[in-house]
Amino acid sequence: MTNQKMPDYETIRAAVAGEKWAVAKVVECYQEEINRQATVRKRQPDGTIKEVIDEDMRQHITMKLIEALPTFPLEELEKQSRK
């Protein structure tokens, strides 16, 4: 993963609660990693290989992230923030 900044606690808490603005912010934060994971190598007609983002895969990964947000372990994050 690159040096992306994790969303702040309040944003994560709001995303876990289903706030649309917060979910969008979390997805935006991880967009670079999502794109990296959805990148595939495709052979071109001239025989060269080109890396492209598979849009279906990108959307699938994004949906999995959104679906997982309600199960995010907030308690662990709260413990870490107190230290």
Rank of each mutant, 00 (worst) to 15 (best):
N3L: 11
Q4L: 14
K5A: 13
M6W: 10
D8H: 08
Y9T: 13
Y9G: 05
E10T: 12
T11V: 15
I12R: 06
I12D: 01
A15Q: 00
A15P: 02
V16K: 10
G18Y: 05
E19M: 06
V23I: 15
V23M: 04
V23K: 03
V23C: 02
V26L: 06
C29D: 11
C29F: 03
Q31M: 14
Q31A: 15
E32F: 09
E33H: 12
I34E: 00
I34K: 00
R36Q: 13
R36P: 00
Q37S: 09
Q37L: 11
A38L: 07
R43K: 14
Q44I: 00
Q44L: 08
P45E: 08
P45M: 06
D46H: 06
T48R: 12
T48M: 10
K50R: 15
K50Y: 05
K50W: 06
E51D: 15
V52H: 04
V52E: 14
V52F: 02
D54P: 01
E55W: 06
E55M: 12
M57A: 13
M57W: 03
R58H: 11
I61N: 04
I61D: 01
K64A: 15
L65I: 13
I66Q: 06
E67Y: 09
L69M: 10
F72H: 03
P73N: 09
E76A: 11
L77E: 02
L77Y: 03
K79D: 03
S81Y: 10
R82S: 06
R82P: 00
